[in-house]
Write a protein that binds this DNA or RNA. Structure first.
Length: 397
DNA sequence: AACTCTCCCAACCGCGAGCAT
DNA sequence: CATGCTCGCGGTTGGGAGAGT
């Protein structure tokens, strides 16, 4: 299939856009919608190829774009979604309202990737770089399952994103009709709200199940680990059966988790260092403290409460203290994650200044391998949890 | 002040998917 | 089914800005 000439055409301008060009493009799209990108430049009086116009619009001129520094929450989301989705920037962008895939990609490449690498985490696999050391025991089975589940979920997300795109196209056409009848909107916001309202609540079944199991288990003071295979008729991944604990009986948790599809529970970082304020996570260094439920995004709906597990008598984790193998032990009847997952993840991954590897923070470097493994598991849990806790009403684009 | 180096990000390039014919 | 076209995505690049010497 031959490529269309596009920008190879002589006479077409390349390089940085001038304010005049921006103005022309903006004015044209606001009035007519973009329609066919290929035909747009001529109609708008631009000496650019359609592709360049599309990029300029989608990455810069679109009115529903938020520019500037990424918040902690956004960073966290990117990292976790990247672990789940890989370099599917557009899919990741659907979970970050007002951020473009290009911006996220740039941010990942210039900041987050380096940060992970610096911490000894492979930014591609999101596994500790010395993961090979762990291949001797059965623990890698769990990791493989997690990985598989992530891949599976990733594929599902991809399909979902496709539907979203289609929906977006439809809503755009609709909006186009509206504007042609006299209603001129700032197209981005209009299409955003249209597509957002057209979307069902975005909730990842696997993650919901995961967290449902988690939450339920927390209530019962035991965490047996979610058994994904038992959840819902639509979860059919052949190897999605996942068991964290060999000792604890596998649990089949209804995907509705704590009772309702809209069960609301806050991520409560009770007992964490510094602040005990609900829904606040700490960000060191360049960031401020931010609430999970701040005005922009990521409200606590569908999040998971870890409070009970934190208060469990068997709970041996203190975020104030060192991470010990005991405290992080997974092959016990209690899965000691929760607060550790949230706070630990944040501390581990999002702090430039407070980079704290397990081998550094733990008292015995001999166990750094298994610590790494445990952390890796927490890491994945964190990923899954965060995705699920993304706003139910978050605009997809 | 001048130069070099590094970082960052807007923009480009090429590929693949999907659709129309 | 084959072909051609358009669009979107992800990888990469190049130039400007800022930091360091």
């Amino acid at each position: 299939m031959g490529r269309s000439p596009c920008c190879d055409k002589v006479g077409l301008k390349k390089g940085p856009w001038t304010p005049e060009e921006d103005q022309k493009l903006l004015a044209y799209i606001e009035e007519h919608g973009h329609g066919s990108w290929r035909a747009l430049p001529a109609k708008a009086g631009l000496q650019r190829c359609g592709k360049s116009c599309r990029l300029r619009w989608s990455n810069y001129l679109r009115p529903d774009i938020k520019r500037g520094k990424f918040s902690l929450q956004e960073e966290q989301t990117i990292i976790q979604l990247h672990a789940l989705l890989g370099n599917r920037w557009s899919a990741i962008a659907t979970h970050l309202p007002k951020r473009t895939d290009n911006e996220i990609k740039n941010y990942w490449n210039t900041h987050l990737k380096k940060r992970l690498a610096k911490m000894g985490i492979d930014p591609v696999t999101h596994k500790p770089k010395n993961d090979a050391l762990l291949s001797s025991d059965g623990q890698t089975k769990d990791a493989a399952n997690l990985s598989h589940m992530a891949q599976w979920e990733s594929a599902r997300l991809e399909a979902e994103a496709r539907l979203v795109r289609e929906s977006k196209l439809r809503s755009h056409s609709f909006q186009h009709q509206i504007s042609s009848t006299g209603y001129v909107s700032s197209s981005g916001s209009a299409s955003t709200s249209a597509s957002a309202s057209a979307q069902p609540q975005r909730s990842l079944d696997v993650l919901k199940a995961w967290n449902g199991g988690w939450s339920k288990s927390s209530e019962g003071n035991t965490v047996g680990g979610p058994n994904i295979a038992g959840i819902g008729g639509d979860l059919e991944s052949p190897t999605s059966s996942l068991t964290f604990s060999e000792n604890a009986p596998p649990q089949i948790i209804n995907s509705s988790g704590t009772g309702g599809q809209n069960s609301i529970s806050l991520i409560e970082l009770v007992g964490t260092s510094g602040s005990s304020e609900t829904g606040i996570i700490k960000e060191e260094g360049e960031h401020d403290w931010k609430t999970l439920g701040n005005s922009d995004h990521h409200m606590p709906e569908n999040s998971v409460s870890f409070t009970s597990s934190l208060h469990h008598p068997d709970m041996s984790i203190s975020m104030e203290g060192p991470w010990t193998p005991e405290s992080l032990k997974l092959n016990s009847s209690h899965l000691h994650i929760g607060n550790v997952m949230e706070e630990g993840f944040t501390n581990l991954l999002l702090s430039d200044t407070g980079v704290r590897t397990l081998s550094e923070s733990g008292k015995d470097s001999d166990n750094s391998g298994s610590d790494y493994y445990e952390d890796n598991k927490n890491y994945w849990n964190s990923i899954l949890n965060l995705v699920n806790s993304s706003p139910a009403d978050s605009p997809i684009f």
